[in-house]
C-alpha cells in the first residue's frame, strides 16, 4: 500500500514538471523570443488575418499561382492526405484528370500533399505556371521579366545548403505578385 502511494505521488510530481511547468516554460520562451513563429506565422493585412505563411491556402484564379492538389481542399480542420496506395485506381483517375494529357506539368502539381496544407510548390511548378499568370494579368514583356525575377527571389534554397528540397511559398509569391505595378 505504501508502495502504491509513493508511486502515485511520484506520478503527480513528474506530471506537474512535464505537463505544466515544461509547456509553460516553452510557451514563455517562445513568446519572448519567437513571438511570430509561436503564434502561427500569421500574415495580416491591416488588422485582418489572411492566413499563415506555413499553411497552404487554395488559389483557383488563373491570375494567381496555384498550390498543389489537396485531398482536404486546404481546410485544415483536420489536416489529411489522400492515403491512396501506389496502385490505387482512384489515384490514377485523379492523376489523369489533373494531367489531362499534358506531359509538362511538374509532378508535385499532379499528386496531393501529405498534410493537404503544403504551403510550397517546386520551383519548376512555379515557373510552369508563370505563363498562365502573365496571360491572365495581360502582362507586358517588362512585367513578365519582373515576374520571373519574383519567382527566383521567392525560391527558398535547401536548408544549410543540403537539407530538403528547393521550394517556393505560394502565398508569399502571390503577395509579391500583387505588388507588380500595372502598366
Amino acid at each position: 500500500m505504501k508502495n502504491i502511494i509513493t508511486t502515485l505521488r511520484l506520478f503527480i510530481t513528474l506530471s506537474i514538471i512535464t505537463g505544466v511547468i515544461y509547456p509553460l516554460l516553452i510557451t514563455g520562451v517562445g513568446r519572448s523570443f519567437f513571438a511570430k513563429e509561436a503564434g502561427g506565422s500569421l500574415v495580416t493585412v491591416g488588422d485582418k488575418v489572411i492566413g499563415s505563411e506555413l499553411i497552404g491556402q487554395n488559389f483557383k484564379d488563373p491570375k494567381y499561382f496555384w498550390p498543389r492538389p489537396s485531398s482536404i481542399d486546404y481546410n485544415p480542420m483536420p489536416s489529411g492526405g489522400s492515403n491512396l496506395g501506389p496502385i490505387s485506381a482512384d489515384l490514377k483517375k485523379a492523376y489523369d484528370e489533373r494531367k489531362n494529357g499534358n506531359n509538362e506539368i511538374p509532378q508535385d502539381m499532379l499528386f496531393a500533399s501529405a498534410s493537404g496544407l503544403d504551403p510550397h510548390v517546386s520551383p519548376a511548378a512555379a515557373k510552369y505556371q508563370a505563363s498562365r499568370v502573365a496571360e491572365a494579368r495581360a502582362f507586358s514583356t517588362e512585367q513578365i521579366s519582373l515576374l520571373n525575377l519574383l519567382i527566383d527571389k521567392a525560391t527558398e534554397k535547401r536548408d544549410l545548403g543540403f537539407l530538403g528540397d528547393e521550394r517556393v511559398n505560394v502565398l508569399k509569391l502571390n503577395f509579391a505578385l500583387d505588388s507588380i505595378p500595372a502598366h
Binding site: 513563429e37 500569421l42 485582418k48 489572411i50 491556402q57 484564379d61 503577395f175
Partner: peptide, 16 residues
C-alpha cells in the same frame, strides 16, 4: 515555426 500558445484557433480570410 512550430506553434506554441494557448490561443483560440484563428479564423483567416484567405486572399480568395
Amino acid at each position: 515555426g512550430v506553434v506554441q500558445n494557448f490561443s483560440h484557433y484563428v479564423t483567416a480570410h484567405t486572399v480568395e
